[in-house]
Simulated assay, not measured.
Amino acid sequence: MRQVQVTEAKAAFSGLLAAVEAGESVAITRRGRVIARLVPDAATSAAEAFRPFWDNLEEIDLVAPDAETPEPVAAL
């Protein structure tokens, strides 16, 4: 992982974004300490987004409620 100082990151931000877009990860440092990371975005499928819900099926109520008769609405 490439490391750059904040001042360098500010001056070369477009170039850093191009590197990240190409798959590289960049750590941004201040006084030798990492304060942020630029990492490529990973596409997430809907199945992956909802996987935590499906892993705990016993905790999810998947039963539809009984049909209820709608209440009458007052005429205007």
Rank of each mutant, 00 (worst) to 15 (best):
A42V: 15
V73K: 09
S45E: 01
V26S: 01
L38W: 07
D41C: 12
V26D: 01
A75V: 15
R51H: 09
K10D: 13
P52L: 07
R30I: 08
I60E: 12
F13K: 04
V6K: 04
R31N: 15
W54P: 01
A47T: 07
A67K: 10
R30C: 06
V63A: 05
A9V: 00
L16K: 01
E58D: 15
T29D: 02
V63I: 05
A49T: 09
K10F: 14
A43E: 13
D61I: 01
A67F: 10
E58S: 13
E21D: 15
R51I: 04
A9T: 01
A18C: 04
A43G: 11
A74C: 13
P40C: 08
W54I: 15
S14P: 05
F53K: 05
A12Y: 11
R37Y: 12
V4H: 00
A43N: 09
D55E: 13
D55L: 14
E21N: 14
N56V: 12
A19M: 08
F13S: 04
E24Q: 10
P40Y: 07
T44C: 13
A36Y: 06
M1K: 10
S45P: 00
W54S: 15
R51S: 12
L17I: 08
E8L: 12
V39C: 12
V63P: 00
A22F: 02
A64Y: 02
M1V: 14
P72W: 07
L38I: 09
R31G: 13
R33T: 10
E58C: 06
V63K: 05
A43M: 08
E59C: 04
E58L: 06
D66E: 15
V39N: 11
Q3G: 07
T69K: 14
D55C: 06
G32K: 01
F13I: 08
A64N: 03
G15W: 02
P70R: 10
P70G: 07
S25Y: 07
A43H: 08
V20N: 04
A19Y: 01
I28Q: 02
L16C: 02
A43T: 10
W54G: 12
M1S: 14
E68R: 11
R37D: 11
P72F: 11
N56T: 12
A46E: 09
K10T: 11
P70M: 11
S14K: 07
D55M: 10
Q3W: 09
R30D: 14
R33A: 11
R37A: 13
F53S: 10
